[in-house]
């Protein structure tokens, strides 16, 4: 008489799947955040009239401590023009927008060379500003 062997059911434990997926996603979120500029501290200047602008590839930020960033990465003033030119490549006119986010109290000594660098790279300058509120900021 043959005694049939007991069959074991092999299943993949799915309890840890949630944690694995969560950790993977956190990893990719942090990786993505390092490439944008949402972690940089700056306050926009205000103006009475603003228009909505599409955020395209290149953004330049001068933060509260007058540090310069290109697409979220700190960069030197002397390298800025070449780096923007490289990012813009052969993009046609109208698609060469460079978003310029300058902290409202930054002085001309810091922001004018940045504007010059964008202009030198052939970028279309877009100042990111906020609409003027009734109570002026001090």
């Amino acid at each position: 008489m043959k005694i049939p062997r007991k069959k074991f059911q092999a299943t993949v434990p799915s309890v840890a799947m949630g944690d694995i997926a969560f950790n993977l996603l956190i990893f990719f979120v942090i990786l993505a955040r390092a490439q944008d500029d949402s972690h940089i501290k700056w306050e926009p200047a205000s103006t009475p009239k603003v228009e909505q602008v599409k955020s395209i590839g290149v953004s330049v930020v001068v933060d509260i401590d007058s540090k310069l960033y290109l697409n979220g990465q700190e960069i030197g003033e002397s390298q800025l023009s070449a780096a923007i030119e490289k990012l813009l490549g052969n993009a046609p006119a109208g698609k060469r927008s460079v978003l310029l986010k300058v902290h409202r109290n930054t002085t001309a000594l810091r922001f004018e060379p940045v504007i010059e660098a964008v202009s030198q790279a052939g970028g279309d300058l877009v100042h990111i500003l906020e609409e003027k509120s009734l109570q002026p900021k001090k």
Binding site: M17, G18, I20, A21, F22, L25, I26, V29, A32, D36, S38, T47, K49, V50, E51, Q52, V53, K54, S55, S97, L99, D124, L125, V126, H127, I128, L129, E130, E131
Partner: peptide, 25 residues
């Protein structure tokens, strides 16, 4: 659980990335 976490994070990512920029050319 994995799918729920994934959907939640995608939702928050989309919310964070669609902040409209306003300014002047």
């Amino acid at each position: 659980t994995g799918d729920i976490a994934f959907n939640l994070i995608v939702f928050f990512l989309v919310c964070a990335s669609t902040q409209p920029d306003s300014g002047r050319k």
